[in-house]
Simulated scan of single mutants.
Amino acid sequence: MAENETILTAEGLKQLEEELEVYKTVKRKEVAGRIKQAIDFGDISENSEYDDAKDEQAFIETRIIALEKMLGNVKVIRDVKETDVVTLGAKVLLRDVEFDDEEEYYIVGSVEADPDTNKISNESPVGRAVLGKSKGSIVNVSAPSGFVQYQILDIS
């Protein structure tokens, strides 16, 4: 993996491109309008609206630069159709050996990770543990409370 490479699914790439477009075409104009309006209020030395708008402008410009940098060095991972081992882009059905709970995770790059939607990073403890393993394997994952054992039930 190249240094500073951004690993994304096709869906993740589309989302970042859309986010960048919104920042460039919508957010920039909105904040420019807020700055102009704040200047119209008069003395900007003690104008909180102006300060807030300038802070937001700085955030927007920083985010645009970060997104452009990420998108400038993207590696798109393909959706996995059928595989014998866990790879980036795979969906993995895991069973907690101790509690017999099942959970399905989608293994993605760190930029796209979203635990709320079961998208976990290849760099996360669970992601690292299952990468390269096959169906039926049992993996140990370090957790704050000790080790958790998962069995890989399915890979798709």
Rank of each mutant, 00 (worst) to 15 (best):
K91E: 15
V31I: 15
D84R: 14
L71F: 02
E56Y: 00
E104C: 06
A10C: 00
K36F: 01
F147A: 10
A58M: 06
L153W: 05
N73L: 06
T25D: 12
P115T: 14
S137F: 03
R28Q: 11
R28Y: 00
E61T: 07
L94E: 08
G136H: 09
G33S: 12
Q57C: 00
L131D: 11
V126H: 02
A38C: 06
I65C: 00
R63Y: 01
D52S: 11
G89H: 06
E11K: 15
S121G: 08
I107R: 08
E21H: 08
V74C: 07
E21N: 14
A10T: 02
I35P: 07
V92A: 06
D100R: 15
V141L: 11
E18Y: 02
S137M: 04
P115E: 13
I60W: 04
V22Q: 11
D40S: 14
S45I: 06
S142M: 13
G12M: 08
A38S: 11
D79F: 00
I77N: 09
A2N: 13
D116K: 15
A143H: 01
I138D: 08
K29F: 00
A32K: 14
E49A: 13
V108F: 03
K119H: 12
I39K: 15
G136P: 09
Q151I: 08
T83Q: 10
K14G: 01
P125K: 10
D114N: 15
P144W: 01
S124A: 09
P144Q: 08
P144D: 11
N4R: 14
E11D: 12
E112T: 10
N122D: 13
S134V: 07
E18N: 13
G132Y: 07
D100G: 03
I138A: 05
Q57D: 07
Y50N: 10
L20Q: 09
E61A: 06
I64T: 07
V74Q: 09
E102H: 06
V80P: 07
A38G: 06
E21R: 14
A143V: 04
L93W: 02
D116F: 01
E17G: 09
I7S: 05
D84G: 12
K135V: 14
P144V: 06
I35Q: 09
Q15N: 13
A113C: 03
V141D: 10
K27F: 00
S124K: 11
P115M: 10
I44N: 09
L67Y: 01
E3C: 02
D43G: 05
A143L: 04
D84L: 08
S156E: 14
E17C: 03
A66Y: 03
D51S: 13
V80N: 09
N4I: 01
E68C: 02
K91W: 07
N73S: 10
K27Q: 11
E112W: 06
E103D: 09
Y150A: 11
G33A: 10
E49R: 14
